[in-house]
Write a protein that binds this DNA or RNA. Structure first.
Length: 431
RNA sequence: GGAGGGUUGGCAGAGUGGUCUAACGCGCCGCACUCGAAAUGCGGUUGGGGAGAAAUCCCCUCAGAGGUUCGAAUCCUCUACCCUCCGCCA
């Protein structure tokens, strides 16, 4: 939810900004019209209510009765307008940061940097499914008979590799020395607090989901009508609301979580896309970073998250590129969106394996997550304001498995385990 | 699934129809004292919203929604959550 002050003070700026995200700028005019009406009625209602108090103080029962009816009338008119205003308000997406590249869709995303060279094979590389089936570690055929398309069994070496990634990731992100060095690389002296590992709920109530601005598109979500809950599409969905309706002391920031959960996605509208293997499936496991910081640290924190992602991918020795997503490719609640794409030899292109989203206060406003300033330095002592939130992938396990299998395959169809994972999964996957 | 008890500001906690404009305390913020701090003293401190150039004034907010009443933290209804016990269960 966007700050109402911006909507009122500079609607033209908002119109321009949301148009760049392919949203309808007419929403802003519609909001302005309803807001003006709402303000007029609210002033009238407040006056009537003040009057009502005076009637009751005087024990003027007759006057109170009559005035009360007038209050009800105005209340009814406001209720409708308020509902309309709210529904328009929620449709207005977050504004892109100043440095977000312009562009209508992903074709206009900007590659910021590349790391590692795609490997030159002296044989024809296979894709992950061919490799996995030959080794007997990925089974989509039986999975489709049992659960439907876009499901898979990960067995043996593939399962071990998943646990290795999880173990390695948790060990890395909870290691104070590693985090200090990554944070220091982003900005000297930047917050060096390690992550707290979390296993969050995988079900979420509709109202909370909406406050996270992640309920839409509903087609993409699994819904369980008997209990009125949704399955999450990312640990972000239940980590983000963790401090809803709370006021966090500034001294306790940043709060950094590393969530591990299964993610559920219906993949509606992706029929026929990426149907082979486990690149796009209904159920996959993911390690997700989520953090709460003071507004002035918001962008640095996102850069820190990207640095963590790069550290992880660099240490796995996988070739990747960092991409700044243009305004048109940003999610609704995002102010700044950066992706990491990893080289997939079978497709001879980089595919998205990570994303890092900076939301500013867009989610925090509706979640009611505030911080209380404790330092008088900036004249902010004791004041509360909305926290700024970031979320980012640490490992989308399935896609990382694909990248490891395809990039590290040998001519005999076995797979070399990245060095940093060998102590958990052995040197090689042979089936 | 059944029975009972709860939910009050950042925290703790009083308040069972009319100065609740929510006590006392802790914490927090500001000021004074101090070289600085602690201690102390004084003042402020839920969160939102509206009107106004401003000073300021007003409204909402006691888990959430609705109701009764001239008047609700307090009475009624529903919902959510927490605690205790029983049942079931990994």
């Amino acid at each position: 939810m966007l700050d109402i002050a911006i909507l009122r003070d500079d609607p033209e700026r908002v119109k321009k900004a949301i148009a760049s995200k392919n949203a309808d700028p007419g929403l802003v005019d519609e909001f302005g019209r309803l807001d003006a009406e709402w303000r007029k009625l609210t002033a009238a209602l407040d006056e009537k209510r003040a009057e009502q108090k005076r009637f009751s103080e005087r024990r003027d029962i007759e006057g109170g009765k009559k005035n009360k009816e007038e209050i009800r009338e105005i209340e009814e008119r406001i209720a409708g307008i308020e509902r309309d205003r709210e529904s328009i308000w929620l449709k207005i997406p977050n504004l892109p940061s100043d440095d977000t590249p312009a562009g209508r869709d992903e074709s206009e995303n900007v590659v910021l940097r590349k790391q590692g060279e795609p490997r030159q094979f002296d044989f024809e590389p296979k894709d992950h499914l061919a490799l996995g089936e030959a080794l007997g570690v990925i089974d989509t055929e039986r999975a489709s008979r049992i659960a439907g398309t876009r499901f898979a069994y990960l067995k043996g070496g593939a399962a071990l590799l998943e646990f290795a990634l999880i173990h390695y990731c948790i060990e890395t992100l909870t290691n104070p020395a590693v985090i200090e060095s990554i944070a220091g690389g982003v900005k000297p002296g930047y917050h060096k607090k390690p992550f707290v590992p979390v296993i969050p709920p995988v079900m979420i109530r509709p109202d909370v989901f909406a406050r996270m601005a992640r309920l839409e598109p509903k087609d993409e979500r699994y819904y369980i009508p008997s209990d009125d809950v949704y399955l999450i599409g990312s640990a972000e969905h239940t980590l983000g609301p963790l401090h809803g309706e709370e006021t966090i002391a500034e001294a306790d920031l940043p709060i950094r979580y590393l969530g591990f959960s299964t993610a559920f996605r219906r993949e509606a509208g992706s029929y026929g896309k990426d149907t082979r293997g486990i690149l796009r499936v209904h159920q996959f496991d993911k390690l997700e970073m989520e953090s709460f910081v003071a507004p002035e640290d918001g962008i640095t924190e996102q850069e820190f998250f990207v640095a963590v992602q790069e550290y992880l991918m660099w240490s796995l020795e996988l070739p990747y590129q960092v991409v700044f997503c243009c305004a048109g490719d940003q999610g609704d609640p995002d102010a700044r969106h950066i992706d990491i794409e990893t080289w997939m030899p079978s497709q001879k292109k980089y595919r998205e394996t990570h994303s890092a989203d900076y939301m500013g206060d867009y989610q925090a406003r509706r979640l009611g997550t505030r911080i209380r300033r404790t330092h008088a330095a900036a004249g902010k002592g004791g004041k509360t304001e909305f926290v700024h939130m970031n979320d980012a992938t640490a490992f989308a396990v399935g896609r990382t498995l694909i990248a490891i299998m395809e990039n590290n395959q040998l001519c005999d169809g076995t797979i070399e385990v990245p060095k940093v994972l060998q102590k958990y999964a052995g040197k090689k996957i042979t089936g």
